[in-house]
Design a protein around this nucleic acid. Structure first.
Lengths: 332, 332
DNA sequence: ACGCATGTTGTAACCGGTTACATGACCTAG
DNA sequence: CTAGGTCATGTAACCGGTTACAACATGCGT
């Protein structure tokens, strides 16, 4: 037996569908008699309104689409958590879509959301400005997180990757480290690139040598990077990984090799995922969840017709110093 | 200017809406001429189909609703990650809804999903069987994770909490620990209750004393529990926390108090969140992501009309021994 | 008694897709 | 030449809600 519709309810309560709708939406121009009859019929039939149909006629879904490049590592968990918190606080649901592969798939994912969501939050550090511009359906408001360029005039929330990377350079330099390794993030990723560029530039200004190894943001690649260096007989006294997961992998490899952290090698990460605090990792604190919450917040403001200043909001991260660079810091 | 609809495209291409629909859905009974005209019009107008309307007429959304009690701690991140992986692999989107407060809110959240999703995955360890039964809309297939009782005949995926807790009891006993503390999970939570019950029973069979302190699954409550015990001058040589986050909090409190782990106090958690491996926590390994993926998998099978055996699928967890109980294990 | 304001209710169009069915063009076999 | 088949296309109903508007009842003032 198919689910009851509003017309079934109307028939059973002997009223029109308009009256049923009015009762369900708590409009006040309904007589007590009618209200009671409808309420009863709803109960008897176990009627639950069809949200899809409702949003079609209202042109409003109360849902927000979230497009993520992938769902791995604590960074994404955290950002989704922040969005979710804000969304449920403001009465919205989140429609998730993860994009593993290329830009074609991303575009499809975004298109597939048209008519299901009122707006989009897009985290696509691997898409070019153009790709983004034509992937977002025309009439769908969108807020971007960490995109390059101006991204088709969509408002956005951004992390000041350069400031973070420079703080790391300062810190390592002030510790007197002179043979430094940077484990970079995935190629083509805008965050990875900004971090690497700023870090190298800052060290160069100080005349400190850097060696760059490319990673992919996963823990294993941090481990592999260090192992490769050690095997090649390279020596270094400072490591900056482009994110915390790779830093964690690096720490494990260093531990296994019997190198002391921070005495022999200082290690710094980026993001400050929850794990970082637990392993005592010095890192660039990003307040990831807040970044997500802020993006959602702006999107909802736009949806509700409030003025939005537009443009890119830059969030400046701060270095937190823990035991992987400071021997006096409490290890864990 | 409002978004283009299929009728706009039809007008522009000088064909009927039926033809447009046929082209968009790649049906083959369309002439080359028509296909070209439609494709061109779509491009010119930047037309993107309205997924909401589409699913209304197809009675199919390609989305799955996920109801979670809250979104805190790695447990939920992991389970969502597992679901997401499976969902995107099989071409579904995930609609998230977090329920912070009571059963009323949970029921509303599930109802709000009717017509937006093809089915539900519900993780509601705090709801009673009855509450669940009438919160799930009649015609919506649902798969439950870790619910009590039989939950209205919905199929489910369950964790064998008792087996896990017993393994912990065995392990602590075999280490010769005799004064044991259990930091329990939130009251009213079915997992918390099953773990505590089985743990106490197992220790009782061995004649080992246990002291129970109630926590709430958050890290801070694990910390607070240990602090309270130490302040009260209690002494103990084994701690079993009902989840890893509380175990992590407990570890921190023990460290601060100068107690050695595992020599003075052995610590065991539950869940094996990613963090556990990093801090060397002995714990009950749950394969959280797989649990989520499995639930989704079953739901999709049901949606696609495949036979489902029904009933509750029990997943037996395994103890993984790390450095918080085994001094020989590699610390981190 | 009438006109008019007020309040409740129902009818039907609409949101933007899909698709059953009808139509008509064209081809082929008898 | 006609009957029947194939193929591309269009018309309109339908999915399940919302709501503008019309219709009607009621009560009031005059």
């Amino acid at each position: 037996m198919a689910d009851a519709t509003i017309r079934d309810v109307a028939r059973r309560a002997q009223v029109s569908v308009a009256s049923v709708s009015r009762v369900l939406n708590r409009l006040d121009n309904v007589s007590e008699e009618t209200r009671a009859r409808v309420t009863e019929a709803v109960r008897e039939l176990g009627y639950v309104p069809h949200a899809g149909a409702r949003s079609l006629s209202l042109a409003r879904t109360n849902a927000i689409g979230v497009v993520l490049p992938d769902f791995h590592g604590e960074f994404f968990s955290e950002i989704v958590r922040g969005m979710d918190r804000e969304a449920s606080r403001r009465g919205y649901m989140l429609l998730l879509s993860n994009v593993h592969a290329g830009s074609e798939q991303s575009a499809n994912a975004m298109r597939a959301m048209r008519g299901r969501v009122d707006g989009l939050v897009i985290l696509a550090p691997h898409l070019s400005e153009d790709e983004l511009a034509d992937a977002v359906p025309r009439g769908t408001p969108a807020v971007l997180i960490n995109t390059r360029g101006d991204a088709g005039g969509h408002p956005g929330v951004r992390l000041d990757n350069a400031a973070g990377a420079e703080a790391v350079a300062d810190h390592l330099a002030s510790l007197g480290r002179t043979r430094i390794v940077h484990i970079a993030g995935a190629a083509g990723n805008i965050d990875a690139q900004q971090r690497a560029d700023a870090f190298l530039a800052a060290l160069q200004r100080r005349g400190i040598a850097v060696q760059v190894i490319e990673g992919d943001f996963l823990e294993e690649s941090g481990e592999a990077a260090i192992e490769a260096l050690l095997k090649a007989g390279e020596s270094f006294d400072g490591v900056f990984a482009a994110n915390d997961m790779m830093a964690s992998g690096a720490l494990q490899a260093l531990n296994r090799a019997g190198l002391r952290v921070p005495e022999d090698v200082a290690v710094v990460g980026f993001d400050d995922v929850p794990l970082a605090r637990h392993i005592g990792l010095t890192t660039v604190q990003v307040h990831i969840a807040e970044l997500g919450a802020r993006a959602l917040d702006r999107l909802i403001s736009i949806l509700e017709g409030k003025e939005d200043p537009g443009g890119q909001e830059l969030h400046k991260p701060e270095l937190v110093i823990r035991s992987t660079t400071d021997p006096k810091a409490n290890p864990r």
